[in-house]
Nucleic acid binder design. Structure first.
Length: 626
RNA sequence: GGCCCAGUGGCGCAGUCGGUUAGCGCGUCGCCCUGUCACGGCGAAGGUCGCGGGUUCGAGUCCCGUCUGGGUCGCCA
């Protein structure tokens, strides 16, 4: 894998610390205790130079009369050659891999036929004269090299080994480089990097908070911030104009492959005196630049198309569409409202026209259907439009001629187009068909590879109906409603849109943001509709509402998820591959043993007593973990 | 909280219809090998199949429960 960072295969980084500024020809020169050169550094220019290097025993090839050892450090890999006459021969034949050693030796040019083009140091090798063990290595839980598959549990338990592996080492370095680049760009654009508190107050809306008991205040708790949302708005009120932060966010929610349990990072941004377009311009520039910089071989679409929430739900059945899939859904419920066909009548029916299916075998349709059923669909009906423009297929006979005609017209069906149908309850159909759309595209080569397809999802509804029929905020309660106070007072809450937007890339929600509500009157009214009294708002969001009374500028922002950005750039499908020390799915740190039980003394100090759940097996510290 | 998948030497996996000596690759150990770079060759050690119960003449295999891990739905303003 020749690097996304533009580095050759085994190079781990660009520049080395100490080393070559030491000049042996100068008086008073002494060899550094551990190294004159790093492992990635020696080259043909160093031939015949005496060097000292330290690193890990990466791999060994013992040919009997000559021994080759690969020595690895952060910067690269170099081949050591050891002859039986050398005092280093005996130890280096027997030391376990991953032992840390210091070696002294001389750089030799390799014969032309022995050059390894895979290695940046492949033109040379180091003939070893002396070796010293700096760190011995016990029997490995798994190979660092070659890179075998290992369960994630093992990898996390021995994360320090896992992180030595090239892929992980590369991902972590990529993450650092992305952060460095983002900071640079934000600074260049005039944004100020400001820290916000980690110990803060709970947020009544949103996800579950992590809580921290307050020793000085019995019965009270701090909460870790789910995002610095209110603080960044307060910074705007304080007049800082443009804020950013690589901000840690803590949410006590269940994990997913693209959602880290516990904590994650956002490039948190807020700007004053802006409208939606101003925010878009900045973020789009920063993200596009970063994707170009770190994925130069993949196309990144810009400008990003804007899709309204309503449109996205209609055409893609999701508010995070993967635009690499070149298919769109069509809502055809109305055609079948009074149909004789029981499976469709009166239900939510989504059609997915797929062109170019005239020569697809029956198995294609069966496989797509199977895919849908695995995801909980009742079934997946389909028809095919034949050369005469008429419908064929298992359910064609259930459709009247008029229905068929209308259907073909609405899906703009050409001969050879197949149409899949999802029918049923709105929520289920939406969930399944959004995935079927992508799957069908992949199976018909209507899925574009090697591209980052960004889009903005805009015009999110301000409110939605909760399960109990009450009106709730559908996103951020601090968003400005489109139409302002007037809209709140005159429109049906469910029709009100917010200045609320998401960035989606390849089906991954990268970012959410909004133009904020900076007017206290609009704020109280917005909360009133969601069932909050003025007093409640003042109590639960006191800091915010107080600030809005003292001259708040119009402002807005956005917060792209850093982990997901790195995940996309690294080509990984799990966010945990981009985090040095992630929690596992059950929010445990298998290496450090968190969370742990706390002894009685400290609980007492915190004014806490533990009430374990009644259910069997849940006091689960009887596992092997210490 | 629900659902799906997995758990077999140190690691990754195979194990048919329930059938007697549980295989393979990597690693480990021993021997050989002077130009390899995932070196190669020969040989050896190492597992009672996550745990508990059940069905059966007989269970790695079937059933129930449970634990652990991954995925997913709910959840994620």
């Amino acid at each position: 894998m020749s690097g996304r960072l533009g580095l050759p295969r085994c190079d781990r980084h660009v520049s080395a610390p100490n080393s070559s500024q030491h000049d042996p020809t100068q008086p008073g020169w002494t060899m550094h205790r551990y190294r004159s050169h790093t492992c990635g550094e020696v080259s043909a220019a160093d031939v015949d130079v005496d060097v000292r290097m330290s690193g890990w025993l990466h791999n060994r090839r013992d040919l009997g009369g000559v021994l080759f050892v690969d020595l690895r450090d952060h910067y690269g890999v170099v081949q050591l050659v050891v002859r039986p006459e050398s005092p280093a021969y005996e130890p280096l034949t027997s030391l376990p891999k991953e032992t840390v050693v210091r070696i002294d030796g001389r750089v030799l040019r390799r014969a032309a036929e022995n050059v390894n083009p895979e290695l940046s140091t492949g033109e040379v090798e180091v003939e070893v004269g002396d070796v010293e063990v700096l760190g011995s290595c016990a029997a490995l839980a798994f190979n660092v090299f070659p890179d075998d598959r290992v369960s994630e549990e093992k990898r996390l338990t021995y994360r320090f080994l896992d992180l030595r592996r090239q892929r992980m080492h590369h991902n972590i370095m990529l993450r650092a480089a992305v952060i460095r680049s983002l900071r640079q760009k934000m600074n260049d654009l005039g944004f100020t990097d400001i820290q916000t508190p980690i110990l803060s107050a709970p947020s009544p809306e949103g996800a579950r908070d992590f809580l921290v008991p307050a020793r000085l205040h019995p019965g009270r708790f701090y909460a870790l911030p789910q995002a610095p949302q209110q603080f960044k708005q307060l910074l705007m009120v304080a007049g800082f104009d443009r804020y950013f932060q690589i901000a840690p966010c803590f949410r006590d929610e269940d994990s997913r492959a693209d959602r880290s349990p516990g904590e994650f990072y956002q490039l948190d941004i807020e700007m004053s005196f802006v409208e939606q377009e101003d925010v878009f311009q900045i973020v789009e520039q920063v993200l596009t630049d970063v994707f170009h910089e770190f994925a130069p071989d993949q196309e990144t679409t810009s400008p990003y198309p804007r899709i309204s929430y309503r449109d996205a739900m209609a055409r893609y059945a999701t508010d995070k569409p993967d635009l690499r899939a070149k298919l769109e859904l069509v809502d055809v419920s109305h055609i079948f409202r009074d149909s004789e066909f029981r499976a469709f009548a009166g239900k939510n029916v989504r059609a997915l026209p797929v062109p170019g299916c005239s020569d697809k075998p029956r198995s294609f349709f069966d496989q797509v259907q199977e895919f849908a059923v695995e995801r909980g669909a009742q079934g997946l009906a389909w028809v095919r439009i034949d050369e005469r423009g008429e419908l064929a297929g298992p359910i064609a006979k259930f459709l009247t001629a008029e229905d068929a005609e209308q259907l073909v017209a609405e899906v703009k069906g050409e001969p050879g187009t197949a149409v899949f149908f999802g029918a049923g309850d709105q929520t289920d159909v939406t969930r399944v068909m959004s995935e079927v759309r992508v799957e069908a595209a992949k199976r018909t080569d209507l899925f574009e590879e090697n591209v980052f397809q960004f889009c903005w999802i805009v015009d999110f509804p301000m409110y939605e109906k909760g399960e109990d029929g009450t009106i709730e905020f559908s996103h951020n309660p601090f968003s400005m409603p489109q139409g302002g106070l007037d809209a709140l007072q005159t429109q049906d809450p469910r029709d009100i849109l917010a200045w609320q937007y998401d960035i989606v890339c390849n089906g991954v929600e990268l970012s959410s943001g909004a133009i904020r509500n900076h007017s206290p009157e609009v704020m109280y009214e917005a909360f009133r509709i969601a069932g909050y009294s003025r007093e409640q708002v003042d109590y639960e969001f006191g800091g915010m509402t107080r600030a809005l009374h003292y001259g708040a500028p119009p402002h807005g922002g956005v917060a792209p998820g850093l982990d997901r950005i790195v995940m996309l750039l690294a080509g990984e499908s799990s966010i945990r591959e981009t985090i040095a020390f992630p929690l596992n799915q059950n929010a445990q740190d298998l290496l450090m043993g968190a969370p742990t039980e706390i002894d009685e003394e400290r609980l007492k100090e915190l004014h806490l007593s533990i009430r374990k759940p009644q259910t069997r097996g849940s006091g689960s510290t009887d596992s092997q973990q210490g």
